[in-house]
Write a protein that binds this DNA or RNA. Structure first.
Lengths: 121, 121
DNA sequence: GCTATGGGTTACATAAAGGATACCATCTAA
DNA sequence: TTAGATGGTATCCTTTATGTAACCCATAGC
């Protein structure tokens, strides 16, 4: 139990399966080619749809899909502004902050690993 | 700078791009359908090729590919035993421990997020 | 020789992800 | 009235990921 909590070493097949499903949940939300790119960009502030498309060099179709998913998961909010013509702003939600530790970990591990394979330059 | 180190909020496009590439490195190694499943299973000890295939319910073709990638990245070691017929054992390397924090973070976030969307049961 | 087990590989098929292009609708300013 | 910006959607296509089935090689037991 302690063991499981500290290093997630599942003792039984059941536990292993549950652990995997939970990891998969996370991967579904943060994985794929664009999710983390968009989150990174949105850390810079508010963006309109086309601004974001230009910034990330992503096609509108994919951008639309990704933003919907991020919005559904409570990580991004969409605000329609009553301007002429109407504009839509996307920004990170306060909840998205909960990902900070994870993203930082991924970043650190990637950096460490790169140093390891390129010979600790 | 400090900001970047603590919450990875890239200030420039360059930084944003570099951050993304580093995150992508990590995703390449740990992402996909099988990598984390196999790592989870291998936490249980040594496994032979077919044992692992049975355990994970993965086809030999994919298993072979995944194991090669994990091995290339120094996370899994492959040992040929001089038995009749020869057998091959796969196990996690000491280096794989470096992923523990990341995996635990992913697990915790997934758990927390699930509680959030299912209404904090 | 026949069959079984272990460790895979090869060839082929399907599913999922991502991309390109064109387009729709609304509005404004020229 | 035409052109350009806004926020997208629809259609089609390519690439990558994953799966299935059959097969190869070696050894051991019968």
């Amino acid at each position: 139990m302690m063991n499981k909590d500290r290093c997630l070493k599942p003792a039984t097949d059941e536990e292993c399966r549950k652990a995997w499903l939970t990891l998969k949940d996370t991967m579904d939300i943060v994985g794929g080619k664009w999710k983390l790119v968009l989150i990174s960009i949105l850390r810079g502030g508010k963006f309109k749809f086309r601004e974001l498309a230009r910034e990330a060099e992503i096609s509108p179709r994919i951008l639309s899909k990704e933003l919907k998913e991020l919005e559904m998961n409570g990580l991004v909010s969409r605000t329609v502004l009553d301007t002429r013509p109407i504009t839509v702003e996307y920004q990170l939600t306060p909840y998205s902050v909960s990902l900070n530790k994870l993203i930082l970990n991924m970043y650190e591990w990637g950096q460490m690993h790169r140093q390891k394979i390129t010979g600790k330059q």
